[in-house]
Design a protein around this nucleic acid. Structure first.
Lengths: 216, 216
DNA sequence: CAAAAAACGGGTGAAAACACCGTTTTTTTA
DNA sequence: TAAAAAAACGGTGTTTTCACCCGTTTTTTG
């Protein structure tokens, strides 16, 4: 019997997932958590699950952090990402952080069953989504280093700044909010323009929303 | 036995929902559809369901349209909205379009059961989410007329314009794309600022994304 | 048909955003 | 502890955005 943990902040989705997984031969849901932090705490007092079904966009501790944590602290446990994010950045980043597979939330149940079987049997689930991104990554690694993985290299302040970007405040007002000089804010913006390969504030806002840095 | 139809483009969620609903005493899922259009076609050859569980954000024909269609074509059928949108605009608009209740996708299953029971028994499910918005609507109707329902009064061009807003193009470039004078684009922007009660382009972009006018 | 509303186009000036130049201070790390 | 890297800050000028004024043409509506 393969044990599965569900880590997702949507309780209704979790309930549905549990019903489905428990109906699969040989799988059983043994743990649920609202976010990564809660998972790390719950797993202390239990046998680690074989597979963790992991969402990315979650409060407190998101999927990226959680996958990294599992990779180092529970090396036997395999992560299957279940997300609605379909962009290169998210997929490659999760794979880098140790995920064994990546499926979308609007997948058909069969895909879902295949993924679980494959991860249990071979340790990985390489679908078209993943293989495409992997191939692209192999051939354009430098692009990802400078672009997709820019997300990883965002500083605390830059993330905070991106949150403010998605408001109607001017840069001067953002400087006040962050207790920094407007010049510094200018530098943040210019650096992010380069890092994220955008040219305008709207570009920054879209990036922040796309990548779950801000939840709207 | 109360018959239920599921209209949502996330098949996995639908499957989970079906498992849950069928486990409820007295409810049975009799129909599924990927979007509103598919529902209107499928329902032609069947007995209309008692309750439609309806998502808002869907391709082809969204929840707003679908609810309106049901209101006029299937007056016996009651709509329960199941969405992840939590903003005033979406909630009030769906209620205006005939929805009998509104619950969030991350609700607990109990809430979900309560909602179905309440709609079957009383025709409505008034939770805090809905009552708050209703009360606010009663007291600030004029605000909603000019704000929340601005969404309904967006012209074709304004919607197109909002899509361009969420890009890195300047207004001049947008004018070129839309084959209009930059002055006209200026007017569009100023009108939308008033209608949507925002002050900057970022505000417009956030509105457009929040309300599903652009999919990022 | 006349009035009203909506769409389109226009000018000006101020504010904000952006580009590019730089220095000083703090933190890292070799 | 000295060198390197990163973070904070600064000036200047251009482009874009925004606010407020306006008239004309087309469409809608009573």
């Amino acid at each position: 019997m393969t044990s599965v943990a569900l880590v997702d902040d949507h309780e209704l989705l979790r309930t549905g997932l549990m019903a489905i997984i428990n109906s699969f031969e040989g799988f059983k849901v043994v743990m649920e958590a609202d976010n990564g932090k809660q998972f790390t705490e719950k797993v202390k007092s239990k046998t680690p699950p074989d597979i963790v079904l992991l969402d990315i966009t979650m409060p407190v501790m998101d999927g990226y952090e959680t996958s990294s944590w599992i990779k180092t602290n529970l090396p036997q446990t395999k992560v299957l990402v279940l997300s609605m994010l379909e962009n290169d950045t998210a997929i490659i980043r999760m794979l880098k952080n140790g995920a064994r597979g990546y499926i979308l939330k609007d997948s058909k149940p069969k895909v879902f069953k295949d993924a679980l079987d494959s991860i249990r049997d071979s340790g990985y689930f390489i679908n078209e989504l993943v293989s495409n991104k992997l191939m692209h990554y192999i051939n354009h690694e430098e692009v990802f280093e400078g672009d997709a993985f820019a997300l990883n290299s965002l500083s605390e302040n830059e993330s905070t700044f991106l949150k403010w970007i998605c408001t109607e405040k001017t840069y001067k007002e953002i400087a006040d909010e962050m207790c920094l000089s407007p010049r510094t804010i200018d530098t943040y913006r210019d650096n992010l323009f380069k890092k994220l390969d955008v040219k305008t504030r709207v570009g920054l806002a879209i990036f922040a929303i796309k990548n779950g840095i801000v939840n709207i």
